[in-house]
Design a protein around this nucleic acid. Structure first.
Lengths: 335, 335
DNA sequence: CGTTTTCCTGGTACGCTTACCATAGTACAA
DNA sequence: TTGTACTATGGTAAGCGTACCAGGAAAACG
């Protein structure tokens, strides 16, 4: 393959001049520029960004570590990240951890090895070590969607506690008192915040919190199914279910169907995370919708700002609001 | 950040010895290895793969160019690619073209600049130039999902023509004679193959092909909606619709709902591409399901084989079968 | 014992681009 | 005339690993 030296030779200039043409930097005479551009076209020259990045210490690449890009919520977040990155001339390397800390560590190493300029991290756990590791490699990091207690890092997330509070209040206002909470893993802030908002709404309404109605599971269809089966076995049956994310909600819907229960007539259901409009014919779930795209976008913009500004003195925490969308699954007020 | 030289100095060896430890190549004494590993740990050294790749001329990175990763079909393909790549120690850079040739060209340049070892391409059009460009840069390429006439390249795709033929036969066997075809863009082989299979089935059954019932549009919800509206305006109305992909099918379902038509009682519907089981509570669409994951996986394995084998003498075309899954949307036989 | 093989380590240069510094001509003001 | 600023271009080295070649010691072999 042609190198910058080949181009330089053909154009009768020094390699650095070719570099200036490519990067539009410094001074280049118009005729010289034309000669260089002709040489580039003749040789089909394509710059080697490995060499460029090695020298300039900038790769114009970000790493995005999230749990599962096949979940439409994360697909949307990723799209926000990619659009914002693309606007600034950055590429994104996407990594799925499936909530595994081991995978997360593996990918962190890969990203650092690839010299990414910054990392957007949806942490698989509340541990601080991964943040410290990235920072120890002089790489910027923004934490996405989840809090990490006591960490020194920027965070962009949604108000899960508030969303859960509102959804729970909605169910309470419809007359439900036995509401089962089907949450995500313990130690993951969004799952814990969900439970916190649920508890706050119940406490405020003077309703008893039956701790046995609170389940911690996985953010997966299977887990949603299992938790629902477990909750339906209790007597009296809960009159409403609160799903911690969209996959849990779909699992819950299947379990309810298999148990012969109608939604919302027999059991009401609300959930976090909407499904994208493109994938659903008749939206049915009452949800607390998170601004997924916006979250990805803002996190990326914050990260890019950090890159150009140098070491921050104080870290930001940006909390985006959730929107309650009432549809059929939450049902009418109980008589 | 620590470099290999820093590690070497601390361990009292030459840089090349550290390199051997990292890459498990050549001979290294056990004690030396331990000293080096200790030094690596002490310094928190992480190798710079830019420098490595620059020297070794291998990045262990593949490029995947597809049309829209937010479509679950492509999400699944991408997952197959990533799993196969990961198994072989390769990373994947994902690029969405949204069917735009300009975007495709842009990404091809980016990938070549990044010195990817190979490219998996879902071509935005039937043009040969992009293939030639990649090959001119000494980079291997495998074409995914679609044919490019007269191109010299490996291809892994599904049997769209056969799947469309079978779906159309199914509708014919149920008594439908006016079947509207809602296909993708002209010039995209999967869209054309769909129409070809449809025509073959009709011809074989001795049914007239009403060319005005064949629509070419986009692989999108909006286009599916529009094409359906257009078809429903015809008299007599088609008794069945054939959607060229899952997004078109969802658009069609919405248009039918908005027109007050029931599926399948008033209008039958079949489609290409299934929706992932994780996203749907009650699967309803009768589809020709493509082995998306397997397609991604096989294409990647073929590409990796090319990388280690050197220039191929003959190119392969791997055609995977589609599976007809009959569900409610195709309905019962007309009386 | 000499020879071959295996084991272990290092020096040097190179992969390709750009940072940094230097040079030099022209123009314009002081 | 000297100084300053701008334009235009180039030489050299550096960024960080590894390919390639070389060399020496120990072990195995005939």
């Amino acid at each position: 393959m042609a190198t910058i030296r080949d181009v330089a030779k053909r154009a009768g200039v020094a390699p650095i001049t070719v570099s200036r043409v490519i990067n539009n930097s410094g001074y280049v005479n118009e005729q010289t520029r034309a000669r260089v551009e002709a040489a580039i076209a003749d040789l089909g020259y394509v710059p080697n960004v490995l060499a460029r990045s090695l020298r300039s210490r900038r790769t114009h690449t970000l790493g995005l570590i999230l749990t599962d890009n096949s979940n439409p919520f994360w697909t949307t977040v990723a799209r926000g990240v990619e659009d914002a990155a693309s606007d600034a001339g950055f590429n994104v390397i996407l990594c799925n951890t499936d909530e595994s800390e081991a995978e997360q560590d593996k990918y962190l190493h890969v990203l650092v090895q690839k010299q990414v300029d910054g990392v957007l991290l949806v942490p698989a756990s509340g541990a601080i070590a991964p943040i410290k590791f990235i920072q120890s490699q002089n790489t910027s990091v923004v934490v996405l969607d989840r809090r990490i207690p006591d960490s020194q890092a920027d965070v962009v997330r949604c108000n899960s506690e508030g969303g859960a509070y509102q959804l729970t209040r909605l169910l309470l206002s419809l007359g439900h008192r036995r509401i089962a909470m089907l949450s995500g893993p313990r130690g993951v802030s969004t799952a814990e915040d969900c439970v916190a908002g649920y508890r706050r709404a119940l406490a405020e309404a003077g309703a008893d919190v039956d701790a046995t109605l609170i389940c911690y599971g996985e953010f997966s269809l299977e887990s949603g199914y299992d938790m629902t089966v477990q909750m339906l076995a209790r007597t009296p049956r809960p009159s409403a279910l609160f799903a911690g994310n969209n996959f849990i909600a779909i699992g819950a819907l299947r379990a309810l169907r298999d148990a012969g229960l109608r939604v919302p007539e027999d059991t009401a259901l609300v959930s976090f995370d909407d499904l994208p409009a493109d994938l659903v014919v008749d939206p049915f779930l009452t949800v607390a919708a998170q601004p997924a795209y916006e979250m990805g976008r803002q996190a990326t913009e914050l990260l890019l700002a950090r890159l150009s500004a140098g070491a921050p003195t104080t870290y930001q925490e940006i909390v985006l609001p959730t929107a309650i969308i009432v549809r059929g699954s939450s049902g009418q007020a109980l008589e």
